[in-house]
């Protein structure tokens, strides 16, 4: 290991007796332990390698073994901004049908929840996961578990749907403290980042909309705080 200074002996705790200072029986135990730790370390690194590497001959062949070993606690993904960075801003927006105290129904305009996130992140040295990850990754989760016709692919799809709904509702409830939310609609607006000024690529300027259908709010969709008519004042 080139990493450590060979004068390491003088820095840090003094060495113990090592395997050489043990009795025969102790040496056997130590040797077995050394071999076991070595084997487990190698197998672990091999499994993690196959997990993070692009799908290949070996990882396809040992697919099941790799998944069994790695999931759930050693799952990892280092493809941040790779192979290509995301090249568009995806904004999640929502609008609601609100029943005012006199019972009259009105429909709000589209409220850009991602823009609210962006505003919270701006000028912050320590952006919160609430603003940077929750809605962004929640919507990713929804997209990844639904087909084009908004049909969920099983449990994950259904969970992602109620997750996004609850997230949106808790935020709308913050904005409409007086009224009762009757129905809500969500859409995403994907706007391509304009190519760099020095590039000769054409800009795709028309945003792409993905609009979900209206749904009627039930108590299931409401996080606890919102159920009492107020959001839990924990948001900044």
């Amino acid at each position: 290991m080139d990493t450590y200074d060979h004068k390491g002996g003088s820095a840090g705790p003094p060495p113990g007796v090592g395997i050489a200072g043990l009795s025969r029986r102790g040496q056997v135990v130590a040797a077995v332990a050394l071999a076991a730790v070595g084997v487990v370390a190698c197998v672990h690194l091999g499994m993690v390698f196959l997990h993070v590497a692009p799908s290949n001959t070996a990882s396809k062949q040992y697919d099941e073994a790799v998944d069994d070993w790695v999931y759930p606690e050693f799952e990892q993904n280092w493809k941040l901004f790779a192979p290509n960075p995301v090249q568009s801003n995806i904004a999640v927006q929502a609008r609601a049908e609100v029943a005012d105290s006199d019972g009259a129904l009105r429909t709000t305009g589209w409220i850009d929840l991602s823009a609210e996130d962006g505003a919270a992140i701006q000028g912050s040295l320590l952006p919160s996961h609430v603003n940077q990850n929750a809605l962004r990754r929640g919507w990713d989760f929804y997209i990844g578990s639904h087909d084009e016709e908004e049909r969920p692919n099983g449990l994950r799809g259904r969970l992602s749907e109620s997750y996004v709904r609850r997230m949106v509702l808790s935020r709308l409830a913050d904005r409409e403290p007086a009224g009762r939310l009757e129905r809500v609609q969500i859409r995403s607006v994907t706007t391509a980042v304009a190519p760099p000024p020095w590039s000769d690529e054409k800009a795709r300027t028309r945003p792409y909309y993905r609009t979900l259908s209206w749904w009627t709010v039930t108590s299931e969709d409401l996080p606890e705080g919102a159920r009492d008519g107020r959001a839990e004042g924990s948001r900044e």
Partner: peptide, 14 residues
């Protein structure tokens, strides 16, 4: 140009 794009993402440009 890869670095250019994250710099233009609202979620990653404080």
């Amino acid at each position: 140009t890869a670095l250019y794009y994250p710099l233009k993402l609202d979620y990653f440009s404080p």
